[in-house]
């Protein structure tokens, strides 16, 4: 920062030194003009003449010099140089300031100011038994939904909605969205159960499960509330309480927006497509 600031200061310091002469010169030329004309009343003539002579005595040694000064007007190479230097200094200052603000914004964004920290690294198993991590989701947007296969009414509805949203997005921008279903009930939802369940909604859904600890960490990262009733005996039936949002994640794995039950599939798809239009980063090619 010191360099551009110093340049401006130097330019500003140079300014007062240059101005008085220029100012006086402008006044002198303005006053001198009517004096040359014969129309002006005779009373004013001696006054303006004394003024002119005063000014002349102060600055110009000869009439020739005064005449040459008058011809060039208020512009001189010094004024021109000052103008150019000040211009360069200001441009330099504003450019560097702009760059600084940009860096500041990026730094603050990663610090999480005004941006919810949802999501993060994970390692889970998909419905085919393969390990899936956050790295596998990068390069595409991801729509993440949490639920469980024994869910009585809301999850099946929402998964149908997710399938419709996915199809709508896929029509416009093929291969740029991964629909992800994460179970909140890892005790009962293994890869086999997930596979049977999800294939009825959409063949492209990615189902994720893991150990109880892994799922708990995943839910915590996504700020998902879920509760399995305590003291469940093996084989006993139960329902799981959980949050019902779709989490839209960008290709860097950062949280973008949460879609809720109030959004129709068409509205949801539009929101997702609008975000995709804004995305300036990398897309996965495969």
């Amino acid at each position: 920062m010191p360099q551009p600031a110093a340049a401006v200061r130097a330019a500003l310091n140079a300014l007062p030194r240059a101005t008085p002469r220029q100012l006086v010169r402008t006044i002198s030329t303005a006053r001198a003009a009517p004096a040359k004309r014969p129309i002006a009343p005779s009373a004013t003539r001696p006054l303006s003449q004394t003024h002119q002579s005063l000014v002349q005595r102060r600055f110009y040694k000869t009439v020739e010099e005064a005449k040459s000064r008058y011809r060039s007007g208020p512009f001189s190479w010094k004024a021109g140089l000052l103008f150019v230097l000040t211009g360069i200094g200001l441009v330099w200052y504003f450019e560097s300031e702009k760059e600084r603000m940009k860096r500041k914004r990026i730094a603050e964004a990663t610090k999480g100011v005004g941006k919810p920290k949802v999501g993060g690294p994970f390692s889970l198993i998909d419905q085919n038994g393969n390990t899936v991590t956050h790295e596998d989701l990068k390069g595409r947007y991801a729509l993440v939904y949490f639920g469980f296969t024994h869910c009585p009414d809301i999850c099946p509805d929402e998964l149908d909605k997710m399938a419709r949203m996915f199809d709508l997005v896929e029509e416009q921008r093929p291969n740029s969205l991964t629909p992800v279903f994460v179970t909140c009930d890892p005790a009962r939802d293994g890869p086999k159960e997930l596979k049977e369940y999800l294939v009825e909604f959409h063949p492209k859904f990615l189902g994720l499960t893991g150990t109880y600890e892994q799922i708990k960490a995943m839910c915590k990262a996504y700020r998902v509330y879920f509760s399995t009733p305590s003291n469940v005996k093996p084989g006993q039936d139960y329902l799981v309480d959980h949050s019902i949002y779709f989490y839209l994640m960008d290709p860097d794995g950062d949280f973008v927006e949460a879609l809720g039950r109030q959004h129709s599939p068409e509205q949801g798809a539009k929101i997702i497509l609008d975000h995709m239009k804004d995305w300036r980063g990398q897309w996965r090619k495969d």
Partner: peptide
């Protein structure tokens, strides 16, 4: 205007 139902059934 808050929609809580899944609109078009597939």
């Amino acid at each position: 205007d808050v929609q809580t139902e899944f609109a078009p059934k597939k």
